[in-house]
Simulated assay, not measured.
Amino acid sequence: MSPSPVRALVAANLRRHSRDKVGLFFMVVMPFVTILFVGMALGGSATGQDRIPIGVVARDSDPVATAVLRRLEANPDLAIERMDAEEQVRSGVRTGALAAGLLIPPGSTDLELVMTQTNGSGMAARGMIDVAVGKVAAVLEAVRAAEAAGASPAEAEALVRKAQTESAQVAVSTSGAAESSTPRGFAYTAPANVLLFTFVNSMAVAAALAESRRLGMIRRSLAGPVRERSVLLGEVLSRLVIAVAQACLIMVVSTLMFDVSWGDPLGVAAVVGSFCLVSTGAAVLVGSLVRSPSQAPAIGPPLGIVLGMLGGCLWPREVAGETLNMIGYLVPHGWGMDALITLTKPGKGLGSVLVEVAVLLGMAALLLGISLVVFRKRMRTSN
């Protein structure tokens, strides 16, 4: 089979897409607008390892304050700044120097949280403070219960001290695991948008396949000295080139603009390449099934966004809950996100994501197989 007809078909499709100004906007501009604003909302960290600053006003002699501070300082995601006055905390929160503030009046269990609730760091800080305060409250309740059961204050204090030590060890272990599992800021939104926009824009350009059928371009190609498999290969490669170009553009610009670290190049190439094949198969399938060019953008991108939601491309998957997380593994985005996040961890490479790559390749093979069968049937019939 001569490669010339394939090259000509790929070049013709790429020229057509390059003249679509709306499509170019969503491929070239929209991904980075999304990365910027969502990344800032989630903390604005390029590495995902920055600690969240929290200002605290408390007395060292106060037992409640001491217990809460011990919990907060044990969390490696937080940077606790001790301050002398409420106004320092409020000013730091207003200016953005602090993600949140905590005011602990002496001798009181009524704590005041200071935050603006305008960004993801503030919400993350609130969640961690709530956890720490909740654990301290549980210990205080245990003290009251022990004294109510007849224990002396000294015995109750000994039991509580033991409970505090054991729970602090658990808290440190749990916090460390949370820190290493999910990055924040640009470190999360950049990989998420690689998958989201590669899939969504691949689905959007599926309209060109329906347009080619509508105009009779494919039938005219087959009427000439062009084999059917050349047309099939040309259309598939056209979508694959667009998917790869979209993914590479987001990765390169995210690295240069937001200092995103992707991890092992070989592992990233395997994951992104596999996902591009999945996107290509989905694009060809949608382009083969729809009857008019207007149907593809009406069906494909919304479907891609829904799949991105399920796969954790719009928010961290742990926020969605266990049920949605399990559903997320039914779509390629969930496997792709797990793989890309794993590769950002130190010492992780291709060997750490072989399962995810295998699943993505299996999904790609299934989609490409079905799409080529459907596309071949549509080529031999009318629109």
Results as ranks from 00 to 15, higher is better:
Pro3Phe: 09
Val6Pro: 01
Leu9Glu: 10
Leu9Lys: 04
Val10His: 00
Leu14Gln: 08
Arg15Met: 10
His17Asn: 10
His17Ala: 11
Met27Cys: 10
Leu36Ile: 02
Phe37Gln: 00
Val38Trp: 08
Gly43Pro: 03
Gly44Ile: 13
Gly48Tyr: 02
Ile52Tyr: 02
Pro53Asn: 05
Ala58Met: 06
Arg59Phe: 09
Asp60His: 15
Ala65Gln: 07
Leu69Phe: 05
Leu69Trp: 01
Arg70Asn: 15
Ala74Leu: 07
Glu81Ile: 13
Ala85Arg: 12
Glu87Asp: 15
Ser91Lys: 15
Gly92Arg: 02
Arg94Gln: 14
Arg94Pro: 01
Thr95Arg: 06
Gly96Met: 08
Gly96Trp: 02
Leu102Cys: 01
Leu103Glu: 02
Ile104Phe: 01
Asp110Asn: 14
Gly120Glu: 06
Gly120Arg: 10
Ser121Trp: 10
Ala124Ile: 10
Arg126Met: 15
Met128Asn: 01
Ile129Arg: 00
Val131Arg: 08
Val133Gly: 00
Gly134Ala: 04
Ala137Pro: 01
Val139Pro: 05
Val143Trp: 05
Ala146Asn: 15
Ala149Gly: 14
Gly150Asp: 12
Pro153Ala: 13
Ala154Arg: 13
Ala158Gly: 09
Lys162Trp: 12
Ala163Trp: 11
Gln164Leu: 15
Glu166Lys: 08
Gln169Lys: 10
Gln169Arg: 14
Val172Gln: 12
Thr174Asn: 11
Glu179His: 14
Arg184Asn: 03
Arg184Ala: 04
Phe186Met: 04
Phe186Asp: 00
Asn193Tyr: 05
Phe197Ile: 04
Thr198Asn: 09
Thr198Ser: 13
Asn201Leu: 11
Ser202Met: 09
Ala204Gln: 05
Val205Ser: 10
Ala208Leu: 10
Leu209Trp: 11
Arg213Phe: 14
Arg219Phe: 06
Gly224Thr: 06
Val226Phe: 02
Val226Tyr: 00
Glu228Gln: 07
Val231His: 01
Val231Trp: 00
Glu235Trp: 00
Ile242Asp: 03
Cys248Thr: 11
Val252His: 03
Val253Met: 11
Val253Arg: 03
Met257Lys: 00
Gly263His: 07
Gly263Gln: 07
Pro265Lys: 04
Pro265Val: 05
Ala269Asp: 00
Ala282Trp: 01
Ala282Lys: 01
Leu285Cys: 07
Val286Gly: 03
Val286Pro: 01
Ser288Lys: 06
Arg291Val: 06
Ser294Cys: 12
Ala296His: 07
Ile299Met: 14
Gly300Met: 07
Leu303His: 12
Val306Ala: 14
Val306Trp: 03
Gly308Thr: 05
Leu314Ala: 05
Leu314Asp: 03
Pro316Thr: 05
Pro316Trp: 05
Arg317Tyr: 04
Arg317Gly: 02
Val319Ile: 13
Val319Arg: 12
Val319Ala: 07
Met326Arg: 15
Gly328Met: 09
Tyr329Ser: 08
Leu330Asp: 04
Met337Val: 06
Ala339Glu: 12
Ile341Cys: 09
Ile341Met: 15
Lys345Trp: 04
Lys345Val: 06
Lys348Ser: 13
Lys348Phe: 12
Gly349Asn: 08
Val355Thr: 13
Glu356Gln: 10
Val357Thr: 07
Leu360Phe: 08
Leu361Ile: 14
Met363Leu: 13
Leu368Gly: 01
Gly369Pro: 06
Leu372Gly: 00
Phe375Glu: 02
Arg376Ala: 03
Lys377Met: 10
Lys377Gly: 06
Arg380Trp: 10
Thr381Cys: 06
Thr381Ser: 09
Ser382Pro: 08
Ser382Lys: 15
